[in-house]
């Protein structure tokens, strides 16, 4: 028996090759048959999903590190997010996962019309998700709750006004010019840090670099003790949820929360968009009847990708929106 390999050899194209089955023209020549192509594609897509997990992993690392070391930022800033919108988005994605999985089933059972409808539902859900995200993002732009330096809200999450550095009382939300310095610096004033100085914002201590006492008392996560409101500090050690009092201003570097928020949801959104493009292509192909029980790999693999997108959101939602 010559050890020929799965019948490889270009002269003899065994099986499934232009013999009356409409889908078989999609079996590529170097595969033995449709099952060989399907199995290879399946392994391929799982490897791709594995690398997608690692692609997102760095963002989760950043999230975990920043939240562990500076929980006050997360506990303050997450209130700017609308839990209802996030929950609706979660529901939308879960529904789209169902329709994607059902699309695979429909293709396997040769239910062509059902297949098309399932893909349509998936697409609509995906577009709905993107629409809601657009609404959320525009709200953030409107409230100046953006990443890094651009985090300059005029209102605390509970709606009370935040004093601007140049302290003009009674500023309304819409007309606030974005201050040049973010509010989380020491009153926006470049002053020599003097312990206990009467700096503009009462109740927040300026940076005292040579003061080890403040930083040494608390554990690792509490260098933020310097410059954070005493109220927040005390309640942190008690372990209870932070009570952002009406006059509370954001803790220092709160923009970092939004950096991470936009990085994570932005990258996720790009993947949703990629999924939309793939599903549009699949919709066109399925309307032409390309898929059936003998050939449905692309549907299966796209659905797997889509489930991963859903998986990532399943974690993003509680991590970003449901912080206690």
């Amino acid at each position: 028996m010559s050890a020929s390999e799965h019948g490889h050899g270009h002269g003899d194209q065994a099986g499934g090759h232009g013999h009356g089955e409409p889908q078989s023209r999609f079996i590529q020549h170097h595969f033995d048959d449709g099952a060989h192509q399907f199995e290879s594609g399946k392994l391929g897509i799982w490897l791709f999903l594995g690398q997608e997990v690692l692609f997102f992993s760095a963002l989760f690392v950043a999230y975990i590190i920043y939240r562990h070391n500076h929980p006050e930022i997360f506990q303050y800033a997450h209130k700017y997010l609308d839990v209802k919108m996030g929950a609706i988005n979660t529901g939308v994605l879960i529904l789209s996962s169902l329709s994607a999985a059902w699309a695979v089933r429909a293709a396997q059972l040769n239910q062509q019309r059902l297949l098309v409808w399932c893909i349509v539902v998936t697409l609509l859900c995906a577009l709905g998700f993107l629409g809601i995200k657009y609404v959320e993002y525009s709200a953030k732009v409107h409230h100046h709750t953006l990443f890094g330096k651009r985090f300059a809200p005029t209102e605390a999450p509970d709606g009370t006004e935040i004093e601007q550095p140049d302290a003009t009382p009674g500023k309304t939300e819409g007309g606030a010019p974005a201050p040049k310095e973010p509010l989380n610096t020491v009153g926006g004033v470049k002053a020599q840090p003097v312990p206990g100085a009467a700096g503009p914002p009462p109740g927040s201590a300026p940076v005292v670099p040579g003061d080890p006492a403040a930083s040494k008392e608390e554990p690792a996560s509490a260098v933020s003790g310097v410059g954070v409101l005493p109220a927040i500090e005390a309640q942190k050690t008690a372990g209870a949820a932070i009570d952002t009092h009406a006059s509370a201003r954001p803790p220092p570097n709160t923009g970092m929360f939004f950096t991470i928020y936009f990085a994570m949801t932005g990258l996720h959104g790009i993947h949703v968009l990629g999924g939309v493009i793939v599903f549009i292509w699949l919709l066109i192909r399925s309307m032409k009847g390309h898929f059936g029980p003998k050939y449905y790999g692309p549907i299966d693999f796209a659905a797997l990708y889509w489930h991963l997108v859903d998986l990532i959101w399943i974690f993003l939602f509680p991590l970003l929106y449901l912080i206690a």
Partner: peptide
Amino acid sequence: FVTFALMDSNQYQHDVYWQQRDFQPT
């Protein structure tokens, strides 16, 4: 990845000056 990075950053947090902008060294 998370475990090692978190362990490391945890260790050096007390060296970090959280509010950098007006830092003037003594």
